[in-house]
Amino acid sequence: MSAKKSWFYAFTAPVVVALFCVVILPLLYGLYFSFTDWDGVTVNAFVGIQNYFDVFKDEGFRSALWFTTKFSVVAIILINVIGLGLALLVTQKFKGSNFLRTIFFMPNLIGGLILGFIWQFVFTKAFASIGSALGIESLQIWLSTTQTGFWALVIVMCWQMSGYIMIIYISYLQSVDESLLEAASLDGATSWQKFWRVKFPMIMPGFTVSLFMTLSNCFKLYDQNLSLTAGGPYNSTQMVAMNIFNTAFAQNKMGYAQAKAIIFFVIIAVISLTQVYLTKKREIEV
């Protein structure tokens, strides 16, 4: 028993230490900085919770938070629907389904920044060319208005993440016991019923994982935001992560930005923990 324990410590120690060094320590350090007026070079004064008060009065932060929330809700739903749809498609037995899996997953292998720049080209050049050829006004203004900026972000995010989420759903779909499906067939269930009554409850754990991943990824999005719209026009497509970065590095208010980051952290933590708790409850044991 005790040898087992030693092994336990031996193997977990590196992880615990690493985690402590790169996550816990910076978090505590950051918490300290959020109470100061740190400008990145020197701490001049300890300002207490003034920074936190200021955050709630900060219109830029509020609109960034609202924009991020809207974006996340739309993107999470679409990514999961598309991801599940693709997973159902490629788990059908037909020629080329493996090939399609690779194709769908591929966008995920491209880094967010590059992806953003590629799509920026698509939106501002390709869309505009099609628009001017067909005389469609609305295709020529992509990325220059808040609306198009919003949908551009959603499209790129879905394009990138759906394949990844698809992989998760595939693994759960494949672990659904064939005998259950056979039994359902014998009982005369249609394929629609088989999906909703048998498959869907069985892949609930996958749903928990996917929802959690899309949620945290969408909320924390920075790179696509930067390369696609950079917050423009007039900072109306600026997400929280970018707002925090700009506060810290463009406005030199490191302490204030840190306070924003702590608040952001709390918000994400609360939302994702609630989500995990709620979806876990719906999972069924086999």
């Binding site: 040898a3 031996a10 120690a13 320590l25």
Partner: peptide
């Protein structure tokens, strides 16, 4: 035998901590 394993484990743990502290500092 058991004891020595424990020692190895603890040794590794401390070594790990020491190493990462050095790395941090």
């Amino acid at each position: 035998m058991k004891k020595s394993w424990k020692r190895v484990g603890l040794g590794l743990l401390t070594a790990g901590i020491a190493l990462s502290l050095v790395a941090c500092g």
